[in-house]
Structures are given as structure tokens and as C-alpha cells.
């Protein structure tokens, strides 16, 4: 187990550098100038040149190296060793202004939103995306497992067909349709929920429900298949034969084994729910990471693109690792 964790953690920087290189190459090759305001007044040419130099946007390799240096934490480590950070702190103390916060992994400034660093933007948006994704997965598990168990207990019954149909709709319908319908029903026609924004539990209901449905549908199908398989197995027959109650048979024996495929789906699903909620964020005006990802690409905001991509990649890797670890812990046969 420890070997697995170590191996994966050692692979992490390698994967991230590959992701970094590919993303930066693509983003750099995309047409357009990140310093330009697409619909407005253009700064004079010499101003543009000065800004390009300031942000290392005049040379791919200079940008590649300098950004890798600051984002990987190498610059911070160097400044820590050479004592530069301590000097900056002293200077700040003398001049009576708060010291510049130096993040270890510095993703740079946002080119579009000059008052913000990419670290600040991500720090504000990540809890939102993680909360939304986590809640969506919880709801998906609740709905999916219930539906799956109901379907497996009475296969081909009305309840089974109904849940299968709903699952199929959940998988097929895009979230912007589900989201808009929910908005219309619970926000406008029968206004019991706020139409958007972020803050209270009420504002979380519609977006997390919308985000959860495709996952719920998939979990329902996985659970149903797993349950049908384990309900026909020997140990379930044994359990019933020794007179165990049907409820315990289902939950303690059948479901426990049927849950394993769901658990392995949960890793990528959680990462996906937390990172891929762009459409839901937009429909419900949720200030999460997905919108920054898309807008950064549209604005060619290089620092923000790289920051968000690196964080997303890290999240995907870490969640997959977490699930693998948990999988082994739950089911020692796997190790």
C-alpha cells in the first residue's frame, strides 16, 4: 500500500510536467493576444511591448522556464534558502505595510483581471467547486444506490423499469437542459429556491441535484448489476438458508460486494464532478473553477489557464489515488 502511494506520488510531478508542456504549447499556439482587450481600445504598441516583456510573453521558452520555476515552488525554495523571503519580510515590517504574501506554488497574475493573482482566484473558487462536486456525488450515491437496489430486488418489475428509464434520461439529457428545467420549475413557476448564486444551503440544492443526475444514473446501473449478480451467489443463498432477515441479506452481504464497482467509479466521478461543472456553474451562476477554465481559454489568460489546468490535473490524480487506497482498504483481496 505504501509502495503504491509512493509510486503514484513520484509519478505526479512527471505527469504534471507533461500536462504543463502540452497545455502551454497549445495555449501558446492559439491565435490572439492575451494582453488585448478584444472589444475595446488598443494600448499603444510600445505599451504592449513593455507588458509582453514584463510577463515574459515575448518568448515561449522564457515563459516556459520562468512559469515552471514559480509554479513548481522551485523559486520559493530558492528564495527561502538564499534568505530573500526573510529580507522581504524585514523590509515590509520597516515600511509598515503587510508583506507580500508569497505562495509556495506561485501561479502568477491574471492577465485579464489585473487585481487578482491566479492563486487568489483558485483559492476562492476551489472550495466552491469541491463543495458542489462533493454534494453532487453524495446525492448521486443516495439516489443511485436506492434505485439500483430497488431494481435488483424485483428485476423487470414496474419499479425497476421506472428507475432504469429515469437513469437513461439522466445519462442522456445534458445538464444544461436539466438545469434550465429545474430553474424554471423551482425558481420561476413555483419559486421555492433561489435562482442562482452561492452562499446558503438553498442555493446549493438545484446545482448539486443537476450535477448529480448523470452520476446517479450511472451508479444506479452499476449497483443494479452488482446486486443482481451477488443476489444469485452462493454466500447470499447460505445467508438466507441460515435464516438471516432479508434486509440484512441485502444490505450487509449483497450490497457490500455490489458496491465495489461503484467505489472504483467514484474516483474519476468525484474528480469529474469537482472539475467539470462548467455548465452547471454557468446556468446557476455558481462561482466555481469550471467557469475560470473556460473563460481563461477564451481570454487567452495564460497564467490562469496554466494554473487551473495544473490544479485540475492534480485533483484528478489525487482522487484516483484516494479511491485506489480506499478500495484496497475496503476489500483486502485486491492488494
Amino acid at each position: 500500500m505504501i509502495g503504491l502511494i509512493l509510486r503514484r506520488l513520484l509519478a505526479l510531478p512527471v505527469i504534471l510536467i507533461v500536462v504543463y508542456t502540452i497545455t502551454l504549447t497549445l495555449a501558446w499556439a492559439a491565435p490572439g493576444n492575451p494582453l488585448e482587450n478584444p472589444e475595446g481600445r488598443q494600448p499603444p504598441a510600445e505599451v504592449m511591448e513593455a507588458m509582453k516583456r514584463q510577463y515574459n510573453l515575448d518568448s515561449f521558452w522564457r515563459f516556459y522556464i520562468s512559469y515552471l520555476d514559480s509554479a513548481s515552488g522551485a523559486e520559493y525554495a530558492r528564495d527561502l534558502v538564499t534568505g530573500r523571503i526573510a529580507r522581504e519580510h524585514n523590509l515590509a515590517a520597516q515600511t509598515d505595510i503587510a508583506a507580500r504574501s508569497r505562495p509556495v506554488f506561485d501561479f502568477g497574475p491574471s492577465l485579464q483581471y489585473e487585481d487578482w493573482t491566479v492563486n487568489e482566484i483558485i483559492a476562492g473558487a476551489m472550495p466552491v467547486s469541491i463543495t458542489l462536486g462533493a454534494l453532487a456525488i453524495l446525492i448521486a450515491l443516495g439516489i443511485g444506490i436506492t434505485a439500483g437496489v430497488v431494481g435488483a430486488v424485483r428485476p423487470n418489475s414496474f419499479a425497476d423499469l421506472a428507475t432504469l428509464t429515469v437513469a437513461l434520461i439522466g445519462i442522456s439529457l445534458p445538464t444544461f437542459v436539466i438545469g434550465t428545467v429545474l430553474l424554471l420549475v423551482f425558481g420561476v413557476w413555483w419559486p421555492i429556491l433561489p435562482v442562482g448564486g452561492w452562499g446558503g444551503l438553498a442555493q446549493l440544492v438545484m446545482p448539486s441535484l443537476t450535477l448529480s443526475l448523470p452520476f446517479a444514473a450511472y451508479i444506479a446501473r452499476l449497483t443494479r448489476m452488482g446486486m443482481i449478480e451477488s443476489l444469485g451467489s452462493d454466500y447470499v443463498r447460505t445467508a438466507r438458508a441460515k435464516g438471516m432477515g432479508e434486509r440484512r441479506v441485502l444490505l450487509a452481504h449483497a450490497l457490500k460486494n455490489a458496491f465495489l464497482p461503484v467505489l472504483s467509479f467514484l474516483g474519476p466521478a468525484t474528480a469529474l464532478a469537482m472539475t467539470g461543472s462548467f455548465i452547471v456553474e454557468r446556468v446557476f451562476n455558481v462561482p466555481g473553477m469550471g467557469q475560470h477554465f473556460v473563460n481563461a481559454v477564451l481570454n487567452k489568460d495564460l497564467f490562469l489557464i496554466m494554473g487551473v489546468v495544473l490544479i485540475f490535473a492534480t485533483m484528478l490524480i489525487v482522487f484516483n489515488l484516494a479511491v485506489d487506497v480506499m478500495y484496497r482498504w475496503v476489500d483486502p483481496r485486491i492488494a
Partner: peptide, 26 residues
Amino acid sequence: MLRLLVPFVLLAALVGATILTDPPPK
């Protein structure tokens, strides 16, 4: 069986923590 509940509890704790620390504006 209890081990299976761990992911649920972790996710729920995460949701609860962010909601409590992030009240809506006045």
C-alpha cells in the same frame, strides 16, 4: 461495512464545513 461509510462521511463533512464558513451576504 462501516468502512464503506467513510467516503460518505468525508464528503458530507466537506460540504458542511464550506457552507458553515461561507455565509450569504447581508
